[in-house]
Design a binder for these strands. Structure first.
Lengths: 235, 235
DNA sequence: CGAGTTATGTACGCTAGCGTGCCGACGCTT
DNA sequence: AAGCGTCGGCACGCTAGCGTACATAACTCG
């Protein structure tokens, strides 16, 4: 296990807890390595653990009969298994590891017990839950109204925030699944962003060149999401 | 104020509470009359009250810069002001009264105090919150993938469940705003549903003729929503 | 009754994105 | 070095839905 100090700092939801609560919490967690493509939850299945990503990140995907759509993403700023905060041990969404790395993992029963003994953590996670709900609601509108190009820019920014590098391992195929569009649609949008000098890409690798430009190319939803998170969860 | 018995029975979230908790809760509420078009919350504004609709129902609408989209609906099966359950006194969405009628209203401070003293209610509302989150996530996908006609059918069913009558007061204009599409788009979808003998309509009034047929015409999202609600909140 | 307002029908050209399929290029494996 | 699987560019015709605009038709109010 990594040092407590390091691990504590590594997840934003845990970082600013009172030392005693934080250490108690982290002592109950184990550090796990998540690998690309790993499925942490299947919808309607039982949630046995909550995850607090350190340097990994995870897409949460709604599944209709035959279509899939990413509706939320969790990295070191968030957590997985929020339904446990509501006392529900069922996963609503498919959780797919999109960025490899480590995460703190805690079993459901311990997690729920610790929530009761740590009001500060509990409150903080409820606020996070509020943020996520908001993002879900706004995402619905964003996905409906905004163009692929804007949505792609937003998505790259969200991923960039959670990965530590400018180089993202992503195929057009994968992006198409995330955004719920055709692969060819992604190709066109990617060409547009590359032509504008905002990204560069090549065979399963996308490099963020001009982050500020990407923000301008994305819909306001990106900035709104960030603003809400800061408002609710940054001290 | 209506009789406690009547009022208790009238909102599904409160109906099955232990008698003592229920009566304590309802005694703290006032019954208010909501009128069509009334705005209960503006996004980012402070939430001063929670509402438990009795025979009214309310649309919750996400607002982007220049577009609006209904993302959730609350009637006697639900509540408004769920963010208070999370200890957040801010409204994320525009809450617009869409069906006139009564609701129980409770002030935010009292509500939060009573939550602490009524674990059963608290748990029940957390489960409701889980259901709403799920609906938000699925709605995002539904809105993205499904046709106007299917979505319209679904929306009419949801409204029909919350209104008590087969006759709904709705203009195409209003429906267009709810679904985030053109008025003309609604007209076409409505014509299709009418031609199939599922609804009949005329100048601001839509009559549900064949509920079962509407269910078949709607996307599965309607049935899924209902199933989840039952699973989580019907004893 | 007549004027104004509101709700619905319809039509026009337009655009984003779809489904599909094909090709070439890259890079890994052997 | 050859072969194969993966990735991305591109092109085809097609559809849903857009923005707009205009015409009825139905109610409302004076």
């Amino acid at each position: 296990m990594t040092s407590i100090f390091h691990a504590a700092d590594a997840n934003q939801l845990l970082a600013d807890l009172p030392v005693a609560e934080r250490d108690a919490f982290i002592a109950t967690c184990e550090t796990v390595q998540l690998t690309f493509g790993e499925v942490l939850y299947q919808p309607t299945q039982q949630v046995t653990h909550a995850y607090f990503p350190i340097d990994s990140f995870i897409s949460q995907i709604a599944i209709l009969v035959d279509s899939r759509l990413e509706v939320a993403m969790a990295g070191r700023e968030g957590m997985l298994g929020i339904s446990l905060v509501l006392g529900v041990e069922e996963a609503p969404l498919l959780a797919l590891v999109q960025g490899e790395g480590q995460a703190l993992r805690i079993n459901a029963a311990n997690f729920q017990r610790l929530l009761l003994s740590s009001p500060v953590l509990h409150q903080r996670l409820k606020r996070y839950l509020y943020v996520v709900m908001n993002q879900l609601a706004n995402s619905a509108a964003c996905i409906h109204f905004h163009r692929i190009e804007e949505r792609l820019a937003r998505w790259l920014l969200m991923t960039h925030d959670r990965a530590k590098t400018n180089t993202l391992q992503l195929t057009h195929e994968f992006l198409a699944m995330m955004l719920g569009v055709r692969r060819a649609g992604i190709t066109l949008a990617a060409i547009a962003l590359q032509t504008r000098g905002l990204i560069r890409y090549h065979r399963g690798e996308i490099i963020i060149i001009d982050r500020q430009g990407l923000i301008e190319a994305s819909c306001k939803c990106y900035a709104d999401d960030c603003a809400l998170y800061s408002k609710m969860l940054i001290l």
